[in-house]
Design a protein around this nucleic acid. Structure first.
Lengths: 234, 234
DNA sequence: GCACCTCAAACTTTCGAAAGTTCATTGACT
DNA sequence: AGTCAATGAACTTTCGAAAGTTTGAGGTGC
């Protein structure tokens, strides 16, 4: 075996690496994924790449058009809005169940994830513009821990899948400069608090606000960017 | 091109045929899908089959274990229960939105689908035990029309995906003999009525009852089957 | 008789090349 | 000049065979 990650099949390994590259922004939305190029990048043959891409396509991270290959899912305001709406509905639903059904192990894991998140700096040293990779990981872990109490694996998986897609947009927005004076820490504390006191309504409300807020700031940043562009063109 | 269906790529075609064969019960749950056999059945090479199977696996219709190939998703009481729970949550959510957001075209399509369903016989002539294929199609079309008013394509797609999976169980239950004295027609009329009067609460309640009822009867039938088995063994 | 090892058959996974498609560019014709 | 068909380069899709893995059958030692 060529072996690199500890995965079972090469295809799984390549899919994981592709997914990581897309979610971390190393492969940008709209980027055309050509087999010859990917072949050298991941040191794999067409079949393996194809399988990996097909799976990512099914999850919405890449798009495919017959005979025109694969593209990292392009972003658009409409899609972001639709995704946000879907997340608000599904994630609040799953969070409600999680808060009601979660056991002690869930609580403990949640507290741990929150602690890690609070102690991880938002921006890396020396670069105030770009969000730190470790923070992004801790943030994702906290939200996953929040939902993980839901015993229905199907609902949970779907909710996490939507979060993954949303991560695409978050990464894209980072170079735009970040939210002025947003109390992210406070929002996360509110979520933790509501979860630990087992208050589904409060938790759902806090999550809904958190998700919507993020999207609104993101759209505002995108608008600013568009303005700058059109001004630069004139 | 070898051409058979009117699809764009062979893989799409094979995937559609595989999906149809699984959902219609021609390929039974738990059945091991071997490439050599599938190759002759669908007249396609390994790559094509693999791609089709990977996609179906991502949608939950087949399962794959590394180096052990693919299997039509096996059924279990736990899985059926989890799936039903997920459907109740998601489908009612989507139905509520559909009932509120649906336009005139949606209404018309819904009325048409209901009409077709009412005029299609439940069992084929000469065979009272097995549900008619046309009825199954009309039934699926009615439920899809019910949800189709939801403008959020993501939520809609997820709900329909879960319905697909549930179809597996429905088919499996058919040989067990069907629901005694169930008023299916009445349940469907109630759904239509609530949808047309734009009453989200009534619609959600009717759908919830419809879905749960189906699963309960199914589990009861499965229990009967188990009893027969254990008695036969003694 | 029972556990364990070996080995071959039957698969699955991966590869690299052949076949088929799209897209842009060139050249001919109006 | 402008339109449109022909050509070819760069892909995507599909194939069939090579490489690697699992599984169970048959044989050996205790």
């Amino acid at each position: 075996m060529v072996a690199k990650g500890g995965k079972q099949t090469l295809s799984d390994d390549v899919r994981a690496r592709l997914r990581a590259d897309i979610l971390s922004g190393r492969l940008l939305p709209g980027y055309r994924l050509k087999f010859p190029e990917l072949g050298t990048r991941y040191d794999a043959s067409v079949s393996v790449l194809r399988e990996a891409l097909v799976r990512l396509a099914e999850q919405g991270l890449v798009r495919s058009e017959p005979h025109q290959g694969f593209v990292v899912t392009p972003l658009s305001r409409e899609q972001l809005w639709e995704l946000t709406e879907a997340r608000v509905e599904l994630e609040t639903l799953v969070l409600r169940r999680s808060v009601v059904e979660g056991d002690l192990a869930w609580e403990s894991r949640l507290v741990a994830a929150h602690h890690t998140l609070e102690r991880t700096p938002y921006t890396a040293e020396g670069d105030d513009q770009r969000v730190d990779d470790d923070w992004a990981t801790a943030h994702a872990a906290f939200h996953e821990a929040l939902l993980a109490g839901c015993t229905n694996q199907r609902l949970l998986r779907m909710a996490l899948g939507l979060r993954d897609e949303a991560e695409l947009y978050r990464r894209w927005s980072q170079p735009l400069g970040d939210e002025p004076g947003r109390d992210l820490t406070g929002e996360h504390r509110a979520l933790l608090e509501a979860a630990l006191t087992r208050d589904p309504d409060a938790a759902a409300a806090a999550l809904c606000a958190h998700v919507r807020h993020t999207t609104e700031l993101l759209l505002a940043a995108a608008d600013r960017l568009d303005h700058d562009h059109s001004e630069a063109q004139e």
